[in-house]
Design a protein around this nucleic acid. Structure first.
Lengths: 326, 326
DNA sequence: TTGAAAGCGCTAACAG
DNA sequence: CTGTTAGCGCTTTCAA
């Protein structure tokens, strides 16, 4: 920067200003600085800039996995909003492990990110302590926390699951099994499972542990779980999978076996993935504004960084999509 | 750090050493520093550290999109290898746009990343110039460059596509249409399309522009392209989609219409996505070591950072998976 | 094994 | 609109 300044015949701080906002310097000064930058191939040293300005214009985010496209949409929403404001998004995946999330958050705090977006509401004590102490704006996404950290944007995973069970009951299904994700330290899968149980019990239907499977979100696991459920209880007439990945896996399994759906067994999912609407029969599911969750999360962080009040909590809701699978 | 040092009764530099590598200080010193860190809640300031040490221990990577799980696997491979060595992965998506890639690379250089992993071999002149000038180790992934930058790891997209056409020809198909991705500034889709044409021409089959569709990688686009192809030429007996997303979309469309596959039309894809093996009929496709591409890319970057020679080029190959769809 | 001194390259604050 | 001064918080280098 000193070199550029010398060439342009100005002080370094003027180069700094010209680069930060061209409107801060006169037209002729800007032109000579631009020329000097081009001639020298100068590239701003953002690390030094951040140290001096005490701001990195970086936002960190933790998603469980990158391989599930539902989070990709949220990341897209986050990055679109942040990009416009000149913020950069640092993405990391926790593999559904709070300790990995903790390590990621530690790194984010060390890097002095200006804000953090977390997936879910399950975090270690140390994560809570570090973020509180560091005073970094935080937004929790994809579920509505009972003990919010700061801001949150998502929907009620509990209500979504219960709504689906109500729908299945209204369609006349009475033996509704459940395939969910692993519930260990996962607020969203826990809420969905509670929603399933609540839906059954309010319909006066029994919940049997034997009609519940918990398995990682992979297509094939949906198939395995379904086959296992039906092998153990042939009276099951509907299976609610708390994720479209599992539901699609189960549906493809039925098609492979030549079983009619919902003739042999009705199927329903949760997520509203694009593939669910293309498959035959169309998958009954629940759709969430996935990209919007990210976009609003970004906006809430920017608001907080801009000094606006904390504690915002936004429920973006969900929508049941009735397909032919149930 | 000064506070921590004072509490521990040592100089700041000793704290710095203890945090960087516990083996650099004596056991008792380490203990008192650890205590002081815990008492004060001190968190290392990585930005200041990077400025002083001229290394960020960050690697930047650019993928086209996050929503396609094929890149998620590569990112997983990258991050697993880097994590072990204490490097952090910065992820950004270019949306298949070289100018967006350029902006991302500019930001990476400003942040002084220690290495960069790019998807594909199509880059702007400015990207090449910046990276060369900055002397940052670079690895190109997913295709083998004719004019490599530095290192590369991938496979021949051309050969993969040609191999699939040969397979279809060997199965007796003679009117093979093609659904590919947009070829504008995309070396991989270009190579695949060339492979398709080469496969046809070496079999003595004509290539007709009317039998080619180019469309973004979305399930539904595969359906639209297939329906369009068949509407224009009912003699088509096989369709090769240069991506499983498009192929699965096309296959689901056939199932929706009640068309037998391959009875009505044979289908083949490219990518080896998990869903292709679960669908009925199983999708004929070509599988790549997606995670391995990332893992090797990371290792090549680490080697370069460690001072080892540049210019490594690794062909990780591919494997044809014959399913019932063709 | 530990410490003192000297920056890393930039921007905030204030002044003109 | 532009410049001067004084750090930001750490690590390198050299020395003890």
């Amino acid at each position: 920067m000193v070199d550029v300044a010398r060439r342009a015949g100005v002080a370094p701080i003027t180069v700094s200003r010209a680069l930060a906002d061209p409107a801060w310097v006169s037209g002729s000064t800007l032109a000579s600085i631009r020329r000097a930058v081009a001639e020298t191939g100068y590239v701003r040293h953002a690390v030094a800039g951040s140290l001096a300005s005490k701001t990195t214009r970086c936002i960190g985010t933790v998603v469980p996995v990158l391989s599930n496209s539902i989070f990709a949409d949220t990341l897209q929403g986050l990055s679109e909003v942040l990009e416009v404001k000149g913020y950069r998004l640092l993405i990391a995946s926790s593999q559904y492990n709070p300790l990995r999330e903790q390590r990621i958050v530690e790194a984010f705090v060390e890097q002095r990110v200006d804000g953090i977006a977390l997936t879910g509401t399950t975090h270690t004590e140390r994560v809570r302590a570090m973020l509180t102490r560091a005073g970094i704006p935080v937004v929790e996404m994809w579920n509505l926390p009972t003990h919010p950290f700061d801001c949150a944007v998502g929907f009620s995973n509990f209500s979504a699951a219960r709504t689906m069970v109500r729908h299945l009951v209204s369609r006349g299904y009475g033996r509704i099994a459940y395939i969910g994700g692993p519930t260990y330290k996962n607020d969203r899968t826990q809420a969905r499972e509670r929603g399933y149980r609540a839906g059954l019990s309010e319909a006066g239907l029994p919940t049997a542990e034997a009609c519940i499977r918990r398995t990682p979100f992979e297509f094939e696991n949906g198939a395995v779980a379904l086959s296992d459920l039906l092998a153990h209880d042939s009276s099951i007439d509907a299976v609610f999978a708390a994720s479209d990945v599992l539901a699609v896996g189960a549906l493809l399994y039925c098609l492979r076996r030549g079983w009619p759906v919902p003739g042999k067994v009705a199927l329903a999912g949760l997520d509203g993935s694009p593939i669910g609407t293309l498959i035959t029969p169309e998958l009954t599911s629940i759709r969430f504004p996935r990209r919007q969750i990210g976009a609003r999360a970004a906006q809430l962080l920017l608001d907080r960084i801009g000094g606006r009040a904390a504690g915002a909590m936004e429920d973006l809701g969900f929508e049941l999509v009735a397909g032919g699978s149930a």
